[in-house]
């Protein structure tokens, strides 16, 4: 591996220079902004805000698409920058795109539970969007944990949703490779709830601990030798900002989510009840597109692909994309494939 004749210490000196140079460039990229498409706030409920994006193309004539993101992360990752924006690709296809931002819950919100989120917040957003389009069913796009909420909502309110798309959405929480599920299975959720809202940093720490060297060290070291150009460095910094920008979680809703889904796996066991009503995946009969990442370390592909076995839809399409969890939203490959599949799937059913 050694170069014959290399001066002792010369390689270390070169490494030192590269470390310094990359550090200087990272500092110069620190001011990057996130989010790129024009949007308008159109409705709100508590900390939840519904946005509508400005059109970028003539209308395709499809029902509006409502994006329901996870509670545990910020939704701007779907519109991070022009060349890495699922939202933008949908807009360019002439779709009318709405996005839910759950905001930052405060301690006074800690009793908000999943029923509140489903019925008042998500339900309120759906009601507003449908009111704008004459009451016709909308297309719901649920992402990660937001996909779980979307499945529940669709099962409870089938008349409101025309077509359903799920992205990196866990359904069977007890598949063998699900490390996150193994770790939280023994958590005392009643105790967790008593401790109040959970800071975003804590959940982020959980996600990073799944593969600590890769997720907190290796990616930085790779910057040293890959020598990315300034634009690539700015992309990197945007992602870093998003990864470490996690909102706090309402105590009640998080405790319910952990207990009902991660611990008791109620969705696939068909034992979920929300607000006194049974939530049955078999009641979802809408056309359903389920996209998941084959290398997902947070939501294993097996956790997502299980959806096809449980829904009542006769028009179910499951598709694995060769990338990781976050790559589904922002990688260049997925940036073309994911929106492309969504757009063509919708067009085929118009």
């Amino acid at each position: 591996m050694n170069d014959a004749g290399a001066a002792p210490g010369a390689a270390l000196a070169e490494l030192t220079l590269q470390i310094s140079a990359t550090l200087a460039r990272l500092r110069s990229a620190a001011g990057v902004t996130v989010g790129c498409s024009l949007k308008e706030r159109v409705w709100s409920c508590g900390k939840t805000t519904l946005y509508r994006y400005a059109p970028l193309a003539p209308p395709a004539g499809s029902p509006p698409v409502l994006i329901c993101f996870a509670l545990v992360n910020r939704p701007y990752v779907l519109d991070l920058q022009p060349d890495r924006s699922l939202v933008r690709r949908l807009l360019e296809a002439g779709l009318d795109v709405y996005l839910i931002d759950w905001g930052d819950p405060e301690e006074s919100d800690r009793h908000l539970d999943l029923e509140d989120y489903l019925e008042r917040h998500l339900g309120g957003c759906v009601g507003h969007v449908r009111a704008q389009c004459g009451g016709t069913p909308l297309d719901l796009l649920g992402v990660c944990q937001g996909g779980v909420l979307s499945l529940c909502y669709t099962a409870l309110h089938p008349q409101a949703v025309g077509r359903l798309i799920t992205l990196t959405t866990p359904v069977d929480f007890h598949t063998s490779g699900n490390l996150l599920s193994k770790w939280v299975r023994g958590i005392d959720t009643a105790l967790l709830e008593r401790c109040g809202n959970v800071p975003g940093e804590l959940l982020n720490g959980l996600f990073l601990a799944l593969m600590p060297l890769r997720l907190t060290q290796q990616k930085y070291v790779r910057l040293l030798t890959s020598q990315p150009d300034q634009r690539a460095l700015e992309d990197f910094v945007r992602m870093e900002k998003w990864i470490f920008d996690s909102p706090p979680q309402n105590a009640a809703a998080l405790a319910q989510f952990v207990r009902w889904f991660y611990q008791e796996n109620r969705l696939v066991r068909d034992t979920l009840t929300i607000g006194g009503r049974r939530v049955r995946l078999a009641d979802i009969r809408q056309p359903l597109l389920n996209l998941y990442a084959s290398e997902d370390h947070i939501v294993p592909a097996s956790a997502s692909s299980a959806l096809g076995e449980h829904v009542g839809s006769r028009d179910y399409t499951g598709c694995a994309i060769a990338t990781g969890h976050i790559g589904m939203y922002v990688s260049r490959a997925a940036g073309g494939e994911v929106p492309g599949r969504i757009i063509s799937w919708l067009a085929e059913r118009s």
Partner: peptide
């Protein structure tokens, strides 16, 4: 740090320092 206070350049400097020591 984290959230709005997170500084990627500091995380990078720490990781690069450890890499340097390992080399």
């Amino acid at each position: 740090g984290s959230g709005s206070t997170f500084k990627p350049e500091e995380a990078y400097a720490a990781a690069a320092g450890r890499f340097f020591e390992m080399m």
